[in-house]
Design a protein around this nucleic acid. Structure first.
Lengths: 390, 390
DNA sequence: CATTAGTTAATCAGTCTGCCTATTAATTGA
DNA sequence: TCAATTAATAGGCAGACTGATTAACTAATG
């Protein structure tokens, strides 16, 4: 464990990076406001802001007015200090790629979707081309991008650098992520799509103020993301949240039943068929059931899902459980209430259950948010490590 | 989020607390060694150590010898800077209280057990008396204790300050913890006994180097502690790890079956009876089965436990699972192998499974360790906050 | 004219570099 | 074998340097 110790240089680096961090997450600030936040003196605050502006990290965005005395300058992080890109790689939903680009203040400058056919095109080529196009749309250049965050329907093992359990052609090749980073000359990070949806839920959804939450992703497959105070739990091999494998009942010698068999997309469609509902897709079936007020089907479904959620609650005791994914969204409050009822019979803790508050593409928003955070950390960290050449 | 900014005072505070922290977790150090660790210069290191000694936080414990040049002084944290007490409150095992006291370097100075009858004596009285006795044995005074850590067979909700789900008489009363802290004039912390066993497992057991692990406590009841990189996961209401409530199978309208029904102490005794084994206790039954090589019973038992472990693995994907508690200890490697075999059929991840490496009283050791950590944090933190009076 | 934003100057706290002295072990010489 | 010399290291001291602070000052605005 590295403990912080050093001389006055360290002090300056700390003060600058703290100030920049405040500009990032409190938005535009006057000198006085920054002074209050950091506890630094007036001349020091001036000096820090001068250095940040000289380094191109902060800019003056306006002046106060109204009160007596001179108008205070309002500073903000320079949006051109760096850009972040989020990419969502889709398995079932089309088009297969969704991208967005934002500046360091989080303003989305460009957004696009792109129907790449990975059966033919190399993933690296498709993503590189899409990002270049995105830059043109945003009026910037690829070399100004500081971080690219991918969201994939699979699990990523950072130790081997391979994306596993992914059904999109070409994406499971070893070295893909490194090659993409080389092509783009930018750090590329990968995460599971459900994890990124949880990031979006915290940033823009119902989990904004939660100490933590478990997000149950209910789509063709089942997924789970665990947020502990803003930090995602990924597990030893990126396998945390594979609740499809939660066993249901004792196996009697033969292969056991697990939650995927019970509440995966195919199981839901079978259940829908048994209730005389459309079977074009799990979400369609649920939407139709809700529209018709088909209680029985929804209750039966909720009871199955509740098994998984009960296991999660028993293990983690999260302050909140969020139901997300297209099936959960189709189910809405009706499904939520049914799940709550089913849970009450199973577990003694009455954990609040909520339906996702993110209506936009959660995976894409989450990826963008993750990328943005990485860009900010890079800039703040670079400032802290910078040893001023006397 | 408080960001660190300040002036040269902050620098001194940081350097001092960093140095003290190194003394705590690297043990005795020479000036030179500390210099290497902190990266500070010679005069500064000297100044820091002088201040720490003046404050009674560090002492000279010896001199180097052998090499050329003067003998370097060896500094260590002053053991008298503060003491920690760990207390284990027991439900089934007797005597009902176990205590230990250590100095700030972790040296255990006294240890005792005490057969308090909580049906008659007030918990506060019994604990206070036991701690006073412990101090006498250690040759110190109660007011030198900086932290008392209790381990209880129940869950503690820090927001309400009440211990719940505890069967020891008197211990579920509201305000008990605060009253105890008032009586002792010392901060008192409470944690679940299984959580503390996990702390001991990390400090002294098989999980020393693990990134994280799940500890399955297998005694009369079932418990689970989750360690994520040395940090325990407690859940929203202190209810994380109540795997007894993991549902097993769909409930068919009636009350559902959960893991406690399947693998709790009574279920184990029933299973033992069915296999013609002693039913004086779950641990006895397992010990007898292992002694006789009673495969069938152990396999059946392992299969039940595996259901719970599979759920934990599916949700968390821990790098390691540790089996602990008296039943697990009695089962030893035979039980472990049976569990591994049962898991292989259930989950695709082959998570390593180990039997606990703590032979001593894990709960007591864990409580002591927790208390020690709290004392050290207090001292380091006080140093950081101290504003030197010019 | 009162109030506030921001600068300038003087001071202070804390660390660093470089040099010095003291102490010890090893080596050399009688 | 014993004393003198030498090499190596621990630790202290002085002066320089960095960066923050306080307090006084200037300038802009209602």
């Amino acid at each position: 464990m590295e403990r912080l110790a050093g001389s006055s240089r360290l002090l300056r680096a700390m003060n600058e990076s703290a100030s920049l961090a405040y500009l990032f997450d409190r938005g535009p600030l006057t000198r006085g406001a920054l002074r209050e936040l950091t506890g630094l003196s007036k001349p020091t605050t001036s000096e820090v802001l001068r250095r940040l502006t000289d380094a191109g990290l902060a800019i003056v965005v306006g002046h106060t007015s109204g009160g007596p005395g001179p108008n205070a300058e309002i500073y903000a992080a320079n949006p051109e200090a760096g850009y972040a890109v989020g990419v969502s790689v889709r398995e079932t939903r089309l088009p297969s790629l969704a991208l967005a680009l934002c500046d360091v203040n989080g303003a989305v400058l460009a957004r696009s979707e792109c129907a790449a056919d990975f059966a033919r095109a190399e993933p690296e080529d498709a993503v590189t081309a899409a990002i270049e196009e995105l830059c043109t749309e945003a009026g910037t250049f690829p070399d100004r991008i500081r971080h690219v965050q991918l969201g994939v329907p699979g699990s990523y093992d950072p130790t081997t650098g391979v994306i596993r359990h992914i059904d999109v052609p070409g994406w499971n090749r070893p070295g893909l992520v490194d090659r993409l980073a080389d092509r783009l000359r930018v750090p590329v990070a990968v995460d599971n799509d459900v994890n990124l949806a949880a990031v979006a839920e915290r940033a823009h959804g119902v989990a904004a103020d939660a100490d933590g939450f478990a997000l149950v992703w209910f789509s063709f497959g089942l997924g789970l993301a665990i947020d502990l105070g803003g930090q995602l739990l990924r597990g030893a091999r990126g396998g945390a949240g594979e609740i499809g494998y939660v066993p249901v009942g004792l196996r009697g010698g033969g292969p056991g039943t697990d939650l995927h068999d019970l509440a995966g997309g195919q199981a839901v469609q079978a259940l829908a068929a048994a209730h005389g509902l459309p079977t074009t897709g799990a979400a369609d079936a649920v939407a139709a059931a809700v529209a018709r007020g088909a209680d029985e089907f929804v209750t039966a479904l909720a009871e199955r899902v509740a098994v998984g959620i009960a296991a999660v609650i028993a293990v983690l005791d999260p302050p909140l459980v969020v139901l997300a994914g297209d099936v959960a969204q189709a189910g809405g409050d009706m499904l939520r209430d049914a799940v709550v009822a089913a849970l009450r019979a199973t577990t003694p803790l009455d954990t609040p259950i909520a339906v996702t508050g993110v209506t936009d593409d959660a995976v894409l928003l989450g990826a963008l948010d993750c990328g943005l955070r990485a860009v900010r950390d890079t800039l703040v960290g670079a400032l802290r490590d910078a040893i001023p050449t006397s």
